[in-house]
Design a protein around this nucleic acid. Structure first.
Length: 563
RNA sequence: GCCCUUAUAGCUUAAUGGAUAGAGUACCUGUCUUCGGAACAGGUGGUGGGGGUUCGAUUCCCUCUAAGGGCACCA
């Protein structure tokens, strides 16, 4: 990469000037008109060299060895040194991208180059809501980005199929007189268990007898009591089928679906062993981890009824996760921030079990809530927004406002929804508003896809086997150059997105690229341009289209060819 | 009570300690008998209050205010 070459060159130069052991930063500047790469090293050396930054920058510039790859080095205001990559090289890169050779830099999360991303995790017997939708969109994108920079990624999903929420739902079913055999479609079944869950929750809160009964059902599920198992299995099957349909609809799949029930027994065993080892201790009838010694919370692993809690089960889960897929470098858990304390504790306990195996390998990637403008979603309030419902709404809006077929509307609707989550940082709470949040214009997926389609439409009017051997850099205009440089930035953006687990870097970049292209399109004829210009502009159109398509793919968003 | 997180334009939001704080939306004004108008341009408007560190702070530290979350048998 050019970047590394420039850094090396700078380091050598600094040595000549008698400066060593300083980090050389080199980043694309905020404003591309300043150059392709920029360093603030001169500003940082003012104290060491006791000179003003502009002088230092001049000294560095003088000493830098010349390179064919660099057209120009500028020194600007406070003391930035800006580098401009040669036009010839930029054109070469644009041609590579046109040929689908992106050449993403490699960035491995460890020596085995193998990571697991654990995401989505809905609970059975409940709806897959827009919070899960944000999670699965984020996870899917993180997976694709990490793969793009060279990692082997295992997609995992830990689904809750035991616990009080299920007991509530089953109680609801048992106390209603409805015969579940009368339910035909999956949709009916999911609606039914949703209602039963709400009824169960209400009973739990209002009726002490019902509460007792629900706790009893909860125990029965843990005990695999044959009286409840058939209903539990049947309803759980419905949920899992429903989840699979959602996964398909949003283009996700999993290499491994973990279920809570599957790790319960082993989690209990491990927790008991930990008690013997002295890592966990008895307290008020429960088995807990006393986190005080480590500045952490105290949390329960086995409750006083003898059942493993979420913490206890996590021990069983971690063991399987690290066993089934060979040696992993990292497991990334994409989970909301309320579980920070939980993860800090379980990661610590795992470290105490086996430092070599677990230390530094578990990572809680916090993604924030999707809140409704009116407040938090809750089944009690009956204001859960289901992912499917949201997609349907957007689809309807698209079909109403634009001429397009069902299939295209579906793709655009999924795209618009996913993009509305991914354009924000994972750490931002999204305040969701049905009318405003999912845009189909402005900074939105349909806008990006529209730009792609526009490019395709132009390209389809031309011979598709262009080779671009003749393009010279001499006649290139500022507008053209600016676009080619923007396209060149793509690799750096993808790398940064991988390093920071930030899909929004890619979203923002794509929007900037698309706007820049649309402006260019507005100002410059492409097909009607004179011959030597036409080729270059077609190349720019090609490279823009490929970049948008690839970038959206990394976000888990499909493109269409016509809309 | 203790701990953690957050605060950017009317609203929704972006920004590895860097350059003029970047967008969308809303509102106002324009471009165009197009290569696909789901387009393009211009305008109005912003870092919660107060200190500090730094050549430089939305970013780091302290404090105040406000909001969210967590702190033992839910997941």
């Amino acid at each position: 990469m050019i970047k590394n070459k420039i850094i090396k060159n700078l380091q050598t130069t600094l040595k000549k000037l008698g400066v060593e052991g300083v980090d050389v930063d080199l980043q694309p500047p905020t404003n591309l008109d300043f150059g392709d790469y920029s360093t603030s090293i001169a500003l940082k050396l003012t104290k060491v060299l006791k000179k003003n930054p502009l002088e230092i920058a001049e000294m560095i510039k003088k000493e830098l060895s010349k390179s064919e790859l660099i057209d120009q080095i500028d020194i600007i205001k406070p003391g930035f040194i800006n580098f401009r990559i040669s036009k010839k090289y930029l054109i070469k890169k644009a041609i590579s991208i046109y040929k689908n050779e992106f050449g993403f830099p490699e960035y491995f999360l460890g020596k085995n180059k193998k990571v697991m991303v654990e995401f989505a995790h809905p609970n059975t017997h409940k709806l897959f809501h827009i919070g899960h939708f944000r999670n699965i969109s984020t996870g899917e994108s993180i997976v694709r980005i990490l793969e793009a920079v060279g990692n082997k990624v295992i997609r995992a999903n830990y689904q809750g199929d035991v616990g009080l929420h299920i007991a509530k739902c089953l109680y609801g079913i048992n106390s209603s007189s409805f015969d579940i055999k009368k339910l035909n479609s999956l949709k009916e079944k999911i609606e039914f268990i949703g209602k039963m869950y709400t009824a169960g929750t209400k009973a739990y809160e209002e009726d002490p007898e019902a509460k007792e009964e629900i706790l009893k059902i909860n125990k029965m599920i843990y005990d695999n009591d044959p009286e409840i198992m058939p209903l539990w299995s049947e309803t759980k099957k419905w949920s899992l089928e429903y989840f699979n349909e959602v996964y398909k609809r949003v283009y996700s799949y999993f290499d491994r679906l973990f279920l809570e029930n599957e790790v319960t027994k082993r989690g209990l065993e491990i927790s008991k062993e930990l008690l013997e080892k002295g890592i966990l201790e008895k307290s008020e009838g429960a088995i807990v981890f006393n986190g005080k010694k480590y500045g952490l919370d105290t949390r329960v692993f086995i409750n006083s009824l003898g059942f493993p809690t979420y913490e206890g089960k996590e021990m069983g889960l971690a063991e399987i996760e690290f066993k089934e897929f060979g040696e992993l470098d990292k497991i990334i858990h994409i989970v909301t921030p309320e579980q920070t304390s939980f993860f800090k504790v379980t990661f610590k306990v795992e470290e105490l079990i086996n430092e070599k195996k677990y230390k530094g390998k578990q990572f809680h990637l916090i993604y924030e809530w999707v809140k409704l403008k009116e407040g938090k979603m809750s089944s009690r309030e009956g204001n859960i927004i289901e992912a499917n419902w949201l997609i349907d709404q957007i689809k309807e809006k698209i079909l109403k406002n634009f001429k397009c077929d069902q299939e295209t509307a579906e793709i655009l609707a999924v795209a618009a929804a996913k993009y509305s989550f991914l354009k924000n940082s994972t750490k931002t709470i999204i305040h969701f508003d049905i009318d405003e949040s999912v845009a189909v214009d402005g900074n939105s997926a349909p806008y990006l896809i529209y730009t792609y389609v526009r490019c395709q439409s132009i390209l389809n009017k031309e011979n598709n086997n262009l080779d671009y051997p003749q393009i010279g850099e001499k006649t290139i205009s500022d507008d053209e150059l600016r676009l080619i440089r923007k396209i060149y930035q793509f690799n750096t953006i993808v790398l940064k997105a991988a390093q920071d687990y930030s899909p929004n870097f890619i979203a923002t970049y794509l929007y900037e690229l698309a706007s820049q292209y649309n402006l260019f399109y507005q100002k410059n004829p492409i097909l009607k341009a004179e011959n030597n210009k036409k080729e270059l502009r077609l190349l720019i159109t090609h490279a823009t289209a490929k970049t948008i398509k690839k970038g959206l793919e990394l976000l888990g968003i499909k493109t269409v060819e016509k809309m």
